[in-house]
Design a protein around this nucleic acid. Structure first.
Length: 548
RNA sequence: GCGCCCAUAGCUCAGGUGGAUAGAGCAACAGACUUCUAAUCUGUGGGUCGCGGGUUCGAGUCCUGCUGGGCGCGCCA
């Protein structure tokens, strides 16, 4: 980014001299070496305003262009594009920058410590996490890291729906399985949870409670079973997420909202603002006034509140906790709630633009080339735990963030498991391990590794070296791109291209050798590469193994 | 029926704010290890960017109408 920024600044400077301010200048990498290292198409954008041809404008800009650091070798104007050919010394600045910044290369403080909350996963405590939760988890966690890299104070939060009929159903389901295991007559609840894990909980519950539980009145017994089942499942989820590399700053329980009387408070605000009305014995929220398709019920005719009201209360609480930006990450099946949620916060009096809803599409698992069938109803979901046990944390995280959240994800379990070139995770990790191995080798040979930090980089001039340096230069830009577009997958694509660049370089140019000036310069390049791969993998939450 | 997402090479997918000849991985084929890790590299072939219009210097990208697939449209949670 330092080079692109430098060139953009040069153009801005030149535009200033012809009295043009506030223009957005983009400088990009080129696809074709014929067009130089970097290019800008500003002249096309200015052509309308200035009523001159792009070529004339480009010429005007180039005439006024300065080069205080002396990085530009030559400039060509082709069809209005301004093509920059840089001297090799320009790219050496990138290496210097990385050596200076190290683990901070790519960071920015533009968030200035602003408080941001990202809420994700938030699975119901009615069963183990499934693979869909894995995608939401990886996406949320990586986005959170990216926000941190941009200087935001990020809180990761998990919302626990520990209230409502589903919890009662859970208790009834477990109780039934307990009776079954004990050989007692039992009746399985109509809409109960059928998964095998219910039997596991039942087994644990029998162990935990002993025979005494059956002496309690049913209501109390179910209450105890409910608490036990919920805690057991939450513990499973917490453990799964930890093994998945995710640690939440806060597990926020819905029951807390009730204890703090926040549902009533939120309701009163909506009412006071005139957005509620009664109809058919229920109380409604006029969300259509904020663009929702239809109005929504807040309080049902039986007097109980809806899940939606709890959600409004929850968001009220989020704002009160001082977050200036709130991000909810939801699966595609929750898309229908986006409009009403936005309407909710707006009706509470907050700027709906500070609430961001990120929707990710569903995950399909593939094994042996065919889709793995899953049925939520029958409780036949592939759990996150099973996936983790099978493919490991690194592959799982990488694969989940590998795709645009807007696209459905085909997760190829076989591919994630292969320890070969086909697996992009290994490909990237291997590049890192190679760097490490090289420094081990250097150490074994008694090479004074430290000398690379202030060596003469002018020996880096091979096209493969230049290409690698240009790729390294790109990292902060890619990160910015991933940040602004909430698109972590751009990072995985970048890392693969960086690894590719490195492997090509490594394969055809000798690093450790007799010629010391060349050796140290190349070692510095390897060091920079190693650092950037590490930074990228850190953000994704994938390990960078020193040996493979 | 309505809303949203998706459609790019045989397969899986990249292609912020419109920029030059649309890219990568896999698969296929042909090559490269006495030398720093071959979990690597080099080369070849492969395309009506779902279809039709439109906007403009320029469209895979923006608008519009279709087609096909996914998700959602409860006083469920």
């Amino acid at each position: 980014m330092i080079l692109k920024k430098y060139l953009a600044d040069r153009i801005l400077n030149a535009l200033n001299q012809i009295n043009l301010q506030g223009i957005e200048v983009a400088v990009d990498r080129t696809q074709n070496p014929e067009f130089g290292h970097y290019t800008s198409s500003v002249s096309f954008n200015l052509s309308k305003v200035l009523k001159k041809s792009p070529y004339e404008i480009a010429k005007g800009i180039v005439e006024k262009l300065d080069d205080p650091l002396g990085l530009i070798d030559r400039i060509e104007i082709k069809g209005g594009f301004i093509n920059f050919f840089l001297k090799e010394t320009a790219f050496h600045l990138v290496i210097r920058e990385i050596i200076k910044e190290r683990a901070n290369y790519g960071r920015s403080n533009e968030g200035q410590g602003e408080k941001v909350q990202i809420e994700f996963v938030s699975a119901n405590p009615s069963g183990p996490l499934h693979v869909g939760n894995g995608r939401g988890g990886a996406l949320g966690d990586v986005l959170a890291s990216i926000f941190e890299w941009f200087g935001y104070a990020v809180e990761r939060e998990f919302y626990v729906n520990d209230v409502g009929t589903q919890m009662n159903l859970l208790a009834l389901s477990v109780e039934a399985r307990m009776k079954e295991l004990l050989g007692m007559p039992f009746e399985f609840p109509e809409e109960g949870y059928h998964g095998e894990y219910i039997k596991d909980i039942a087994r644990l519950a029998i162990e935990n409670f002993g025979d005494n539980i059956w002496n309690l009145p049913q209501e109390e017994r179910l209450e105890r079973i409910k608490e036990f089942a919920k805690d057991t499942i939450l513990e499973w989820q917490r453990k799964d997420l930890e093994d998945f590399g995710i640690r939440f700053d806060c597990w926020y329980k819905e029951s807390t909202l009730h204890k703090k009387n926040l549902l009533k408070e939120a309701f009163d605000i909506l009412k006071a603002n005139g957005y509620t009305y009664e109809k058919d014995g229920a109380v409604w929220f006029a969300s259509t006034r904020f663009g929702d398709e239809k109005d929504r019920v807040l309080i049902k005719s039986d007097g109980s509140s809806t899940y939606f009201l709890a959600d409004i209360a929850y968001h009220l609480d989020k704002y009160r906790r001082g977050f200036s930006r709130i991000i909810d990450i939801w699966g595609a099946d929750h898309y229908g709630y986006v409009a009403r949620m936005k309407a909710g916060v707006e009706a509470l009096g907050y700027d709906p633009n500070t609430l961001e809803l990120i929707i990710y599409q569903i995950v399909h698992l593939f094994r042996g080339g065919s889709a793995v069938r899953m049925s939520k109803r029958a409780g036949e979901m592939v759990t996150l735990r099973e996936l983790l046990d099978e493919v490991g944390k690194d592959a799982a995280r990488y694969f989940f963030v590998m795709r645009d959240p807007n696209s459905q994800l085909d997760f190829d379990i076989d591919l994630a498991k292969t320890q070969s070139a086909n697996n992009p995770v290994y490909y990237v990790q291997y590049a890192f391990a190679r760097c490490c191995s090289l420094f081990r080798q250097a150490e074994a040979r008694g090479i004074e590794i430290e000398r690379m930090f202030d060596c003469d980089l002018s020996y880096l001039r091979d096209p493969l070296e230049i290409e690698l340096m240009i790729t390294l230069e790109d990292f902060p830009d890619i990160l910015k791109n991933a940040f602004y577009n909430r698109a972590p997958h751009r990072l995985t694509f970048y890392l693969e291209s960086l690894a590719k660049s490195f492997h090509s370089f490594y394969n055809s140019l000798r690093i450790l050798q007799e010629d010391e000036p060349i050796m140290y310069a190349r070692m510095a390049l390897v060091f920079a590469t190693q650092q950037v791969i590490k930074n990228g993998l850190d953000i994704i939450g994938v390990s960078a193994p020193e040996r493979m």
